[in-house]
Lab assay of single mutants.
Amino acid sequence: MAAGGDHGSPDSYRSPLASRYASPEMCFVFSDRYKFRTWRQLWLWLAEAEQTLGLPITDEQIQEMKSNLENIDFKMAAEEEKRLRHDVMAHVHTFGHCCPKAAGIIHLGATSCYVGDNTDLIILRNALDLLLPKLARVISRLADFAKERASLPTLGFTHFQPAQLTTVGKRCCLWIQDLCMDLQNLKRVRDDLRFRGVKGTTGTQASFLQLFEGDDHKVEQLDKMVTEKAGFKRAFIITGQTYTRKVDIEVLSVLASLGASVHKICTDIRLLANLKEMEEPFEKQQIGSSAMPYKRNPMRSERCCSLARHLMTLVMDPLQTASVQWFERTLDDSANRRICLAEAFLTADTILNTLQNISEGLVVYPKVIERRIRQELPFMATENIIMAMVKAGGSRQDCHEKIRVLSQQAASVVKQEGGDNDLIERIQVDAYFSPIHSQLDHLLDPSSFTGRASQQVQRFLEEEVYPLLKPYESVMKVKAELCL
């Protein structure tokens, strides 16, 4: 049975990233139509530049190519590739079939990587351009969430054990800070992308030097003109047959890092959902379990974690691919890159769409948070109580021993009897502590235990987050809708 299948058929496997999760716009960027249309555009740009620099290419040939950029006979191309065992030459023939007058000058002087690699770089750039505003929107939604809850005390956790208090907004800023680093890295790697350009079979530009009869300047002009037509500021000066596969490492490393950030955020949300302090959106008709109707599973956060793990592992592909590119190139890269580049971007696209949807509907339960604080705060307040007693004339050592005994009794009630923490009640009825009984409410005010959390939130948002989001103001209103 021949390899390949009808990918629109229910009898043929289709990647869930495309069929179930990723956005239509990201799927289109990695589609065959987008790819092969870009090949034709690159052939047109090459012909236009070659004509401008004096090669015998007519206006009629150029116009014929322009008129057929979208006229792609995919069936013919597939048949040609089956016959020739070469995808680029299959599309040269297919393009030439609908451009008979231009057929002889299509791909003039070029090698397969002229269309293959340059198209990949265009796709990487455009895919990054799709991700950047999506990530900015996630940051914006979380920034709104953090600002609104900047002063809401909550129990902090280290080692997932109760620690000092923080605020809900401050905790959210930990998430935002990681995503801001990801946004900066995505922008950097996007701006650092260079075009492969017009380089020939081993990167020496020998074929173009021959076409222009040894004119170095025209060869350099050709490279520059096509690079500018493709919208790049610069091209690699040095290439082998391909652009260095280190570029793929750079791009997928940034995406993998984004995956790590999203995994951490969504894990926190899942843990908070278990504590009943916070939940992701839950639709009115949504079913959490087929057997347990009360369940409210954090399905979206779980999906993000599941896909983020996949995204983090994909960076190993370009690392290994770059390491086995012998001399000017081997074909070890080809099949692998067809999979890992598309999957990385479709996965990143999915987790950003999902995280935006989550961040637009996060639900906080202040009463649950308050109750958990009441359970733990008495123990945390013991040092403040000791200091207040010393100020009232008591002995630190005597007070410490009193607190120690009462704390152990209260802990026994919590752990052995399943009761509430009654340390404060014990202190309130103990005559030894009568000098500070009137101060206990103040000493137990949760806001006095959150330090500068709310001020940190305000400063972080104003100095770091809002300036970073400013270039994306025009796209901030787009909502994230999930079908599944």
Rank of each mutant, 00 (worst) to 15 (best):
A3M: 05
G5A: 13
G8Q: 14
Y13D: 08
R14K: 15
M26V: 09
F28E: 06
V29I: 04
F30E: 02
R33N: 02
K35S: 03
F36S: 09
L44A: 15
L44M: 08
T52P: 09
P56Q: 01
I57F: 05
I57H: 06
T58R: 09
E60S: 13
I62L: 09
M65C: 02
K66P: 04
K66R: 04
S67F: 05
N68T: 10
F74P: 02
M76F: 09
A77I: 13
E79T: 09
E80P: 05
R83M: 09
H86T: 00
D87G: 05
D87F: 07
V88W: 03
T94R: 07
F95D: 02
A102Y: 02
I105C: 07
H107V: 02
S112V: 00
S112M: 01
S112H: 01
Y114L: 00
I123F: 07
N126V: 08
L130V: 10
L130F: 02
L130N: 06
P133T: 10
L142S: 11
F145E: 13
K147V: 11
T154V: 08
H159A: 00
H159W: 00
Q164I: 03
T167W: 03
R171L: 05
W175Q: 00
D178T: 09
R188N: 04
R190M: 15
V198I: 13
T202A: 11
S207W: 03
F208Y: 05
L209E: 07
L211P: 15
E213G: 10
V219I: 06
L222A: 12
L222E: 00
D223A: 11
M225Q: 10
E228P: 08
G231F: 03
A235Y: 10
T242H: 14
V247A: 10
D248V: 03
L252C: 09
S257K: 10
G259C: 15
V262W: 06
H263N: 08
K264L: 03
D268L: 00
L275A: 12
M278T: 05
E283S: 11
K284S: 10
N297I: 00
P298E: 05
P298A: 14
S301K: 01
A308C: 12
L311M: 11
T313I: 04
V315T: 14
V315A: 04
L319T: 03
F327C: 06
E328Q: 02
T330R: 01
L331S: 00
R337D: 03
R338N: 04
I339K: 10
C340A: 14
C340I: 14
F345V: 12
F345S: 12
T347L: 14
D349Y: 06
T350I: 10
N357I: 12
G361C: 08
K367G: 08
V368T: 05
I369R: 05
L377I: 15
P378S: 08
I385P: 00
M389Q: 09
R396A: 07
R396T: 01
C399T: 13
H400A: 06
K402M: 11
I403T: 09
Q409P: 03
A410K: 14
A410R: 01
D420H: 15
D422N: 11
I424N: 10
E425M: 09
F433E: 01
F433Q: 03
P435S: 10
H442S: 13
P446L: 03
G451L: 05
R459V: 12
V465M: 08
V465R: 04
Y466R: 13
K470P: 09
E473I: 09
E473T: 12
S474H: 14
E481H: 14
L482V: 13
